[in-house]
């Protein structure tokens, strides 16, 4: 009997840790994403599964600022915490320094997909890099 309780408790704990997300959306999306070819450097295999990059698309604001959107998917069945940070570069490849370029913490449920977006700090910014890091705080 005791073993049954232990098994039930363990099952309960494991199920509580594995909350996943169900989604529904339009079968034929109206919006046309302008996807871009990206280069990835993966050094953390756990993070690469917990915050997997599905794709990157870009557009520009009415004032000509570059706008970037990255789709992130948690391929695991458990909640993940991560932080991301955008870096911007001008046409000469020089880093554009901005006081608002900071690590933003996010959390993502199991099997959930979310988008992170950023706007270039100046119209001179032509390129970008996104850094993702597992948040253990």
């Amino acid at each position: 009997m005791k073993i049954n309780y232990l098994f039930a408790s363990l099952l309960g704990v494991s199920m509580a840790a594995c909350t996943t997300v169900n989604t529904v959306e339009r079968a034929q999306p109206v919006a046309q994403k302008q996807m871009i070819a990206d280069k990835r450097v993966l050094t953390d295999a756990g993070l690469a599964r917990g915050a997997s990059i599905v794709g990157v698309n870009e557009s520009s604001t009415p004032d000509g600022f570059l706008k970037v959107q990255v789709e992130i998917l948690n391929r695991t069945r458990s909640l993940k915490h991560f932080s991301y940070r955008f870096e911007w570069f001008d046409q000469n490849g020089m880093l554009v320094n901005t006081p608002t370029s900071t690590s933003i913490p996010r959390q993502i449920e199991g099997q959930e997909s979310l988008f992170i977006t950023a706007i270039a700090p100046t119209p001179l910014a032509k390129d970008f890099r996104v850094k993702l890091i597992e948040d253990n705080r």
Partner: peptide, 12 residues
């Protein structure tokens, strides 16, 4: 601040 600036620049 980053959220506010992103939103403001995006608004046009």
């Amino acid at each position: 601040a980053e959220t506010m600036i992103n939103s403001l620049l995006d608004s046009g």
